[in-house]
Amino acid sequence: MLYYEGLFILFMSKIFYPLICLICSIIPLQLHAAMTGGDFEIYADVFSTIEEHVVSGGDYDLYGTSGEFGTEMPSGGDYVLRAGFQAMERESLSLTLDKNAIDLGALTSDAISSDTLTCTVTTDAISGYNITISEDTDLQTGTGLEIDDVIDGEVTAGSEEYGIKTAGTAGQYNAADTAILSTTKIIAQQVGAVSSQDTGVIFRAAADAAATEAGNYSHTVTFTATINL
């Protein structure tokens, strides 16, 4: 009984709620201090952080050494960056492909040849990740004969076309086929940290009985994973 009376008195006392507010305000301050404490704790893109929290307008100098930064007198430019600052995020990124090569077999005009590769990504980056694809050359023979890239959004049987389609939450071409280019093209993108997120990449090709010449067609594609900016 005495215990409940004590609790009641505590709840009704004038210092209880200010005390709770004080505790709540101290916890975030401690977290903030931890973020700026060492070499590996500061956000890598430190300028956006400074932009929001340190700078209040006007020209200034910015320097940094071993993870500490501050302002100084201006000496030309909008501000001055001095050497020494080096920061990284402890984020990691993992990319797994379940195949080393795609085998489309012999292309025919009767059906679409396809083979699927699965990309699996794990990252703790809050910004998320993206996967791009690029090629060294078109799908071609040693003598330069090429299988045309798909341009109409769908690889069709009987028509000489080659492209990819994606499957999965992060897939960017789940609805239509797209060509692989020598420039990078994002095929999967996700915001937020993910664990073992799969994206299927379906390689699809078809031949035109009249236009596609016999030969060994091949090329190399590169999957690149990075966290989002």
Binding site: F85, A87, R90, S92, T96, L97, I227
Partner: peptide, 13 residues
């Protein structure tokens, strides 16, 4: 194929 890297982002002046 499976590769993991860390850090995923870094800055140097």
């Amino acid at each position: 194929q499976a590769l993991s890297i860390t850090p995923a982002r870094q800055t140097a002046i």
